[in-house]
């Protein structure tokens, strides 16, 4: 998972953030999407009489709520354009295409969409374009696959496809948003993670307040200064406080129920969250002594997940006063 790099290079790894958002549309946008499903384009009349396509729910000048639908053509004129030589993920076409603001006949504002023109030489402001509809419209701006050049010399359009079967108005839109990031650990955290890959815990001491942080951070949060002095820590300590997670949720990686506990390693001044196993959940106590149960060495990486969980050592519990200031 992690990129192998020189020893002092901070670690980094991919972080993918994705969700299919479910958007409710409300009356104005719902009507627009419903019309798109029928391969029709409908705008809305603004306070000043202008016809907005795509429709807007609230007038841009008066902020008045708008509601009067106005049908417009699926052909129109390009009012501005650019050329995309190298389309990126999710865009309407995956070969080079033009982006255009298209003012449809009957509309006063312009709709942004792709134009499948083949070459930038065929694009110009004022050119006529017409919608190319997808075969199975669902009620989305993507029901228009793209626009294509129209007017004299354009290829004739094929016969109109039959309107789709859907009869219920479109009220919702599903929008997948999937983004790829690279997550980096700080220099200090990277040293700690590399130590974990060797089965060791290291923290760092703040030069200002003397507190030992594990994992070490980019800066001591209390003083705003980088921490440098390294401190080797044992893989045992106490549970300061905890909860028992019984609730399942999307993206969860540990099957409930499990004990999520703050573990304060001996010699550290800050606790971190980890899993406690090795006894019944209702036997976990504040102040309980625990030690790391490491995964088999061959599965170690630069991650706190090398510690499968913490388990009770059987030593007497720490007195409350000894960890009171860590709550």
């Amino acid at each position: 998972m992690a990129t192998p790099l020189a020893p002092d290079t901070p670690l980094s790894a991919p972080l993918d953030v994705g969700f299919d958002y479910t958007r409710s549309l409300g009356p104005v946008l719902g009507r627009f999407m419903t019309a798109l499903r029928e391969r029709r384009i409908e705008g809305v009349r603004g306070s000043d009489g202008r016809v907005h396509v795509p429709p807007v729910e609230f007038d841009p000048v008066t902020s008045e709520a708008l509601s009067e639908p106005v049908g417009v053509a699926d052909e129109g004129t390009v009012v501005s354009w650019s050329w995309m030589p190298d389309p990126i993920a999710g865009q309407p076409l995956q070969h080079p295409f033009g982006w255009a603001l298209v003012r449809l006949d009957g509309a006063d504002t312009a709709l942004l969409h792709a134009v499948d023109a083949g070459s930038p030489d065929r694009m110009r402001t004022g050119m006529r374009v017409r919608a190319r509809w997808v075969d199975e419209p669902v009620g989305s701006i993507r029901d228009i696959a793209c626009f294509e050049p129209a007017g004299p010399g354009a290829e004739p359009r094929g016969p109109a496809a039959p309107p789709p079967a859907g009869t219920e108005p479109v009220t919702m839109l599903t929008t997948p948003v999937h983004l790829a990031y690279r997550h980096s650990a700080s220099v200090q955290e990277s040293r700690y993670l590399r130590a974990l890959a060797e089965g060791r815990f290291i923290g760092q001491r703040c030069p200002a307040c003397g507190k030992v942080y594990v994992p070490p951070r980019g800066a001591c949060p209390a003083d705003g200064v980088p921490t440098e002095e390294e401190v080797e820590l044992p893989d045992r300590g106490i549970v300061t406080t905890f909860c028992i997670v019984n609730v399942p949720f999307l993206g969860q990686r540990i099957t409930p129920p499990y004990v999520a506990a703050y573990v304060l390693l001996d010699g550290a001044d800050i606790a971190f969250l980890h899993l406690v196993l090795g006894c019944a959940a209702d036997e976990v106590r504040m102040g309980m002594r625990v030690e790391a149960a490491w995964k088999p060495r061959e599965r170690w990486t630069t991650s706190l997940e090398n510690v499968d969980h913490f388990r009770p050592t059987g030593e007497p519990d720490a007195p409350f006063e000894s960890y009171r200031e860590h709550l």
Binding site: Y21, R23, L25, L29, F32, M33, P54, V79, S80, W81, S82, W83, M84, I88, A89, G90, Q91, P92, W99, A100, L101, L111, L112, H113, A114, T125, S140, I141, R142, L173, T175
Partner: peptide
Amino acid sequence: PYTVAPLWPDAVSVAALQARAGLD
């Protein structure tokens, strides 16, 4: 997020539309 973002117009292309408007 309803009528534009689902087409993933990228920031450079949007700026290009603006540049063209000024050229025109």
